[in-house]
Design a protein around this nucleic acid. Structure first.
Lengths: 202, 202
DNA sequence: CTCGTAACTTACTTCGAGTAACCTACTGCG
DNA sequence: CGCAGTAGGTTACTCGAAGTAAGTTACGAG
């Protein structure tokens, strides 16, 4: 099997088993067996168990970025821009429900360098939100804009975990809840600052 | 040394080393040596490495609950109640800066059952916030109240991590930021619902 | 002084991450 | 055809850390 294909297969299998059993409880032998290959091949491709985990996270991150970029293209104003971006995030999470827990929880704990990747995902989200704030209200205090973005990302991340236990709450309702809580506060800031320009993210 | 005292000492040392090096990178031998005791003693007291971690988290959880309860005693209205509760949380985090990363990140990833304890901490916070909402606005949709509470907890958790990289943002300013974003949205819900009663949490 | 128990240690076993060294099958070229 | 080189792969190890079995010391009560 060619390398690129084998690599993708390994990532898919690893993500699956990690999500099922957790990172620590999964052995490299186990992954190798399920892939139908021997352990040293995993080391050939990813260097270490940690490297394999980082590969999984990195792939998810790329996918999230692409989906978000597609979702927010053509949004009219800050509220719609934010709403579409948040909704893309919730949809991504519902799709990757099992592996998302791995990405944000297991990865961060077990493997310091995987944490960088997870932070990268969050960074993407805060960038997206920060860009809404800064481009629609250029006079906003940068520190405040950053803090607001972190607050919104944290809110979504936590609510997404909660949604897993509440099947009745899908991406649409989750987005509504978050917007209901944060938008009045954010809009309030906008009112006190010079007016809107177009947002530019990616 | 008597058991209770030894146990506390083990927890203190373990929390310290876990925070320094991470859970995975720390060996039980290493902790045992720093405590000045042999490895089987740790197993005697905590059963497993996982048990030791859970012990650390559990102790932190208890402390947070006590501090929060003390802080919110005597708050006048929902806004002050929420503000004091959030502030106690940020102060707790600043105090336990290094070990907080362990609790919420490493623990969740590496050890599924430690995750329960971490969720317990979050549950305390959502209970606190949920009690504000429900008791000041008894007619609120319970699902919505729960979602709002999760959103606020997520926002704080994430902002707390951000504060670690931003020494200029202390507990007071962090609380202000969160309140600025969420309070207008929450107050907006209150306005549409029957009026305030006293909150009761713990 | 000796019995009992609380607190502790030494000396293992086991399991899994990571590695060294060797193997196979295909592709291009004289 | 036959052979070299390499992509893709395997077997058989080492080593370190979690967890354990069995034995040892300290010390207060009778």
């Amino acid at each position: 099997m060619p390398k690129a294909q084998r690599m993708a297969q390994m990532l898919t299998v690893a993500e699956e088993i990690f999500a099922e059993q957790g990172y620590l409880a999964t052995s490299m032998d186990e992954i190798a067996e399920r892939v139908g290959v021997s352990k040293p091949m995993l080391y050939e491709y990813f260097g270490s168990k940690e490297g394999l985990l980082i590969g999984c996270i990195h792939r998810a991150r790329t996918e999230l970025r692409e989906k978000t970029a597609a979702a927010i293209a053509g949004a009219a104003g800050p509220e719609e821009f934010l709403r579409l971006g948040l909704r893309a995030f919730f949809e991504f999470i519902v799709e990757h429900q099992r592996s998302w827990a791995l990405l944000r929880q297991e990865a961060a704990i077990a493997v310091p360098s995987a944490q960088e990747e997870v932070e990268g995902i969050r960074q993407q989200q805060t960038d997206m939100i920060g860009s809404v704030l800064v481009s629609f209200a250029p006079q906003i205090d940068p520190l405040e804009a950053e803090a607001f973005a972190e607050i919104v990302v944290g809110a979504c991340e936590r609510l997404a975990v909660w949604c897993e236990r509440r099947p009745s709450v899908g991406p649409a309702l989750a987005t509504d809840y978050v917007m209901a809580v944060i938008w009045p506060g954010v809009a309030d800031r906008f009112k006190k600052l010079p007016g809107p320009v177009q947002p530019a993210w990616r």
